[in-house]
Write a protein that binds this DNA or RNA. Structure first.
Length: 293
DNA sequence: AACGAGTCCAACCGCGGAACC
DNA sequence: TGGTTCCGCGGTTGGACTCGT
């Protein structure tokens, strides 16, 4: 048996809402609420509309806390970052933006932001999957304002692309913490979980576990699995101040690890002369976006 | 001025899943 | 437990508007 229609299609009005309909819906909901039943609402409110249409009109347009108008650079940043992380989960993305609806965010992405994103890709700001050929830093549209990240603090364009000469120096950008997230793989010693290493310009700081270490000195931040075995790096996440952790194992490469570092290709090594350091967004997610177009 | 292409965005559609009976 | 109802979501559509020729 098929599903019953939510309303009598022949007797409901469709298309744009008139100011009178808006007023009736707004007035009813402000007085009565939605009473937990959108299907019954239009009849009670005296509207010849489908309940779903009423719900959409209220949530996307009439709600008092809706923010209309252009998106800010900070909102661009949030959308790009979250889209790169989770794809088209518009409702989740919208929940991170005060007063924005999923429909708003979706429309904005499809009509404007996606193009900016792709233009950046064309310009080479988005690295390829080959770490040997890309020298750019890319940070998902992060602008320099408001986020305390050494990368963000640098001079960026609207897409947060950096030139190959934009190096990360801890003594210039001391706000640099590396929380060890709970999502480190099981074989990482528990002593490292949840600890934060703060930068020191004078001396190196190391948090050691039984077989692993997280170190930060004025030249180098590194996560080292001293016990050997690549799986110790797999799935490691690092928060560089973007608000979301980057997958270190997939997202970062170090082409020029120092000889005395016990780091593998999936660790991070920001050295003072790291012209070859190559920072990538989480592999696969960004590429999947690019592949769509 | 007229027309077509492109852009924007409100609204619709259909599906998945939660809630309810 | 299974069927029904409803909500919320993401994808898509269509009409209004803008811009270029």
């Amino acid at each position: 048996m098929g599903r019953a229609p939510c309303c009598d299609k022949a007797n409901v009005k469709r298309g744009s809402w008139s100011p009178e309909e808006d007023a009736a819906l707004k007035s009813f909901i402000e007085k009565q609420g939605t009473v937990g039943n959108w299907i019954a609402l239009p009849r009670k409110a005296g509207l010849r509309r489908c309940g779903k249409s009423c719900r959409l009109r209220w949530l996307n347009y009439l709600r008092p806390d809706i923010k209309h108008g252009g998106f800010t650079q900070e909102e661009d940043r949030v959308i790009c970052t979250l889209y790169s992380q989770m794809g088209s989960r518009w409702s989740v993305i919208a929940s991170h933006l005060q007063g924005r609806t999923d429909n708003d965010v979706k429309n904005y992405w499809n009509t404007k932001l996606k193009k900016k994103f792709l233009a950046a890709a064309k310009d080479g700001d988005i690295p390829t999957n080959n770490p040997t050929t890309v020298q750019n830093y890319y940070n998902f549209g992060l602008a320099q304002s408001s986020v305390t990240s050494p990368m963000v603090a640098m001079d960026t364009d609207a897409y947060g692309s950096f030139s190959a000469n934009s190096l990360i120096h801890h003594n210039e950008y001391p706000i640099f913490n590396i929380p060890c997230p709970a999502s480190f793989p099981n074989n990482v010693s528990s002593e490292l979980m949840g600890q934060t290493v703060s930068p020191s310009q004078e001396a190196s700081t190391t948090v050691s576990g039984s077989s692993n270490s997280l170190a930060l000195d004025e030249k180098c931040a590194s996560w080292a699995g001293n016990g050997g075995g690549d799986d110790q790096y797999n799935g490691a996440l690092m928060d560089l101040g973007f608000g979301v952790p980057f997958d270190v194992s997939n997202g970062f490469w170090c082409q020029e690890a120092k000889a005395d570092d016990q780091v593998g290709p999936s660790s991070v090594d920001f050295t003072a002369d790291a012209a070859a350091v190559d920072i990538k967004p989480p592999q696969g997610l960004l590429q999947s976006v690019i592949n769509q177009y």
